[in-house]
Design a protein around this nucleic acid. Structure first.
Length: 567
RNA sequence: GCGCCAGUAGCUCAGUUGGAUAGAGCAGCAGCCUUCUAAGCUGCGGGUCAGGGGUUCGAAUCCCUUCUGGCGUGCCA
């Protein structure tokens, strides 16, 4: 009834290799067979202390109270049933009522072949049930080169996308381009001033509000090369339009290039300007008006957002007749829902805290479920060099751009460091550390493990030890704790990916990857893989490290980091 | 003032969402290459989990409160 086979097959048909789930199901089965209530509330975990076994459950402690049985007594009853399964080497009671499991090597051996058979599909699942999720990230103004926070957003958003896709969501990546509005006007003015400067005009002091970056001068030179003085002969409106069009297309292209260099692809780039031309602004205003939550005051039109949880009401249309940023952005969010997404994830920079309540308010006012909108805030990034914080000033145009960073430390290191930190915590980025090609740098630590395995496999092929096919019996040769620990670790990945997707926590992936690599390096230092004297053992270990290599490459790929075969 | 986020080893950070003796990596000290990549491995020190209350079998984790730092609090985006 609680035999091992049905559960094992159940796991296999789902193409999931997860011991945790196997245990959870098994314990549930035993509980219902014993007619105990509340079987969903317990957890199965990997204990910190290896002496506590491979896995551990708190089932007896959690269920003791509601069933009015002492925890240890309940544990004894459970253990008696659980022990009937031959895939456990040991099932023990410990402490206040934990049940600790030691997994039989034979199960690990089966799993190793399983992971191998799954290949690139290992870790894949239907967990997300095809839910359509839109992840919006970066969404910077096209008024300059992308900055460091955009780079962090890119790494974060893209990795989240990759993991969610892996576990069965249907996510899309989107970049909202704010190519309309006030900031674009200022950009055009800045460009015009620089252009006049080139033509020898005295422009006086460069305005405080304008864009001071050197790139504006470069744009001016480029525009001058094509248009020359002719641009000044155009009427003002046409001239400004030409400036805008030129600057936006140049800067947007620059941003696209940055993203490409960072291996981030967006399914969609949505233009605010295009949205406005489609008339969405008027639409949104009419929706809000119909919902009875707008009013006029001091020649402006307001949204009574404070009735829906915001601190105060917000202006929709300014007294000069122009629209605030909020309106087209809300319209944009509504198009996401109209396009069929049931979960909207916005990845925002640290300076948008105050903005979210009004967006939520609008969702409520328009009777959308506001759970549909989920905002993740990335905190700021501080760059350090030689222990000193690199000071940046956007106003003075003194910033380290995303491209500077990629030039300096490379895509792999940059992505790694950005992903490795929790989203809502400040990130101290040590430029020197990211540059170092030694053991202080975790990126190289992981890539090195991959390269090392490739090197061993190459050696095995050269020595003609690499078999045409791996026989199932080879598994039995893997008996060392370091070998089984590697398999154990790999079985944790599918569950981890689901956790990352569910809680939107990509930072767990680098941690996991480092742990897997650490186990491999330890194994490598202790045992020799290729040894012609022990052919079967060598082949069993080759199988093991090849599977580790593929799993590792999979992890790196999810982070958008290359897996080099040689270093 | 109010709101959001953070505070864990000398430094940078994890901590399986409430589990057992809080863990890595650097930095410090001591070791390991005639053998598949030493960009690696092994060992040793190092803690009032910012402080104080509370919730329960059990708290770094949840609640309250104080302190410190960052950000926000535009008819900017």
């Amino acid at each position: 009834m609680t035999g091992c086979l049905p559960i094992w097959q159940q796991i296999k048909t789902k193409r999931i290799t997860m011991i945790k789930r196997l245990l959870h199901n098994h314990i549930s089965e035993v509980l219902s067979a014993l007619e105990l209530s509340g079987e969903r509330d317990f957890t199965v975990e990997v204990p910190n202390n290896p002496e506590h076994g491979d896995y551990s459950t708190n089932a007896a402690m959690v269920l003791a109270k509601q069933n009015k049985i002492a925890p240890r007594k309940l544990a004894e009853t459970l253990v008696k049933e659980l022990r009937k399964n031959k895939f456990y080497k040991a099932v023990e009671i410990a402490g206040p009522g934990f049940i600790n499991f030691k997994i039989a090597p034979s199960l690990y051996h089966k799993i190793l072949f399983d992971i191998r058979d799954l290949g690139e599909d290992f870790g894949q699942s239907d967990y997300g049930q095809g839910e359509k999720v839109l992840i919006e990230f970066v969404s910077a103004n096209p008024t300059g080169p992308l900055n460091i926070v955009s780079a962090r957003a890119a790494a974060f958003g893209d990795t989240l996308y990759r993991v969610m896709k892996k576990v069965g969501f249907e996510p899309d990546r989107e970049f909202y381009v704010n190519d309309a509005g006030n900031q674009v006007d200022i950009l055009a003015e800045s460009l015009e001033l620089r252009l006049r400067e080139i033509h020898g005009e005295n422009i006086g002091e460069f305005p405080f509000e304008a864009y001071h970056g050197e790139y504006v001068r470069q744009l001016a030179h480029k525009l001058n090369a094509t248009d020359g003085v002719r641009i000044f002969m155009l009427p003002e409106k046409e001239r400004t339009d030409r400036m805008k069009e030129f600057a936006l297309s140049e800067l947007l292209e620059m941003q696209r290039m940055s993203m490409e260099r960072f291996d981030v692809q967006f399914e969609n780039w949505v233009s605010e300007k295009a949205l406005r031309q489609e008339g969405v602004v008027e639409e949104v205003l009419s929706y809000l008006t119909e919902a009875n939550c707008t009013y006029e005051k001091e020649e402006a039109i307001w949204f009574s957002s404070s009735e829906f949880g915001d601190d105060k009401d917000r202006v929709l249309m300014k007294s000069d007749g122009s629209i605030t940023y909020f309106v087209p952005d809300l319209a944009y969010h509504l198009t996401k829902i109209q396009r069929g997404y049931t979960q909207l994830i916005d990845v925002f920079g640290p300076d948008h805290h105050g903005y979210v309540p009004r967006l939520r308010a609008a969702f409520r006012a328009l009777k959308y479920d506001d759970d549909i909108l989920e905002v993740i805030f990335l905190q700021q990034v501080n760059l350090f060099e030689s222990g000193e914080r690199v000071k940046m000033s956007k106003r003075a145009g003194k910033i380290v751009t995303m491209d500077d960073l990629i030039d300096e430390v490379g895509k792999d290191a940059a992505r790694y460091f950005f992903i490795a930190r929790k989203a809502n915590a400040h990130l101290n980025f040590d430029l020197e550390l990211a540059l170092q090609k030694n053991n202080e740098n975790p990126v190289y630590y992981c890539q090195y493990a991959h390269a090392r395995i490739c090197s061993i496999l190459k050696r095995a092929r050269k020595d003609k030890l690499y078999p045409r096919s791996f026989k199932k019996e080879l598994g039995q040769k893997l008996t060392k704790p370091e070998e089984l620990a590697l398999i154990h670790k790999m079985t944790d990945l599918p569950g981890l990916l689901e956790l990352i997707a569910e809680h939107r926590e990509p930072h767990r992936l680098p941690t996991y990857t480092e742990e897997l690599c650490s186990l491999f390096h330890r194994f490598y230092n202790k045992y020799q893989v290729v040894n012609p004297k022990y052919k079967e053992l060598s082949q069993a270990r080759l199988l093991l490290i090849e599977v580790v290599k593929d799993v590792l490459a999979g992890c790196l790929d999810l982070m958008g980091i290359s897996a080099p075969e040689k270093m």
